[in-house]
């Protein structure tokens, strides 16, 4: 996948992972795993970027005698998810255009047959 596109998608994924309840790094990775595989070192810059952009805040809590960072979504982050869903609607329209079946050509019976095949395949 295109790097820029994947980066943008992962950002929204991370926001979605903390949308319902605050979460910590390892749990975000685990929650996302069934859908998208993300490594620690990929997640870290994303979290920093989202924090800097005001999409989430970080708070520190003690857990089992050590410190753990919890990420909390901000209104701007919720807005980003909503925005993404709108963008996605536009994208699916573009996708439908890109993958539309080939137009039936004129009178040539051979080409009409192959066009029919293409339609069935898609």
């Amino acid at each position: 996948m295109d790097v820029q596109m994947k980066r943008g998608l992962l950002e929204v994924c991370v926001l979605a992972a903390i949308r319902d309840s605050d979460s910590y790094g390892y749990r975000i990775i685990k929650d996302m795993k069934p859908y998208v595989d993300i490594s620690e070192s990929t997640l870290y810059p994303i979290l920093r970027r989202l924090e800097a952009a005001g999409y989430l805040t970080v708070r520190t809590e003690t857990h089992n005698g050590r410190v753990r960072k919890y990420y909390h979504i901000l209104p701007l982050g919720v807005e980003r998810i909503r925005q993404f869903r709108e963008e996605w609607r536009e994208l699916t329209a573009v996708y439908r255009f890109i993958t539309r079946p080939p137009e039936p050509p004129g009178a040539d019976p051979d080409e009409a047959a192959s066009a029919g095949k293409g339609e069935r395949n898609s």
Binding site: Y24, G25, Y26, R27, E40, Y44, K69
Partner: peptide, 11 residues
């Protein structure tokens, strides 16, 4: 970043 990776290993 050190804290982050330490937390990841601990988790």
């Amino acid at each position: 970043s050190l804290d982050y990776y330490e937390e990841m290993i601990d988790d």
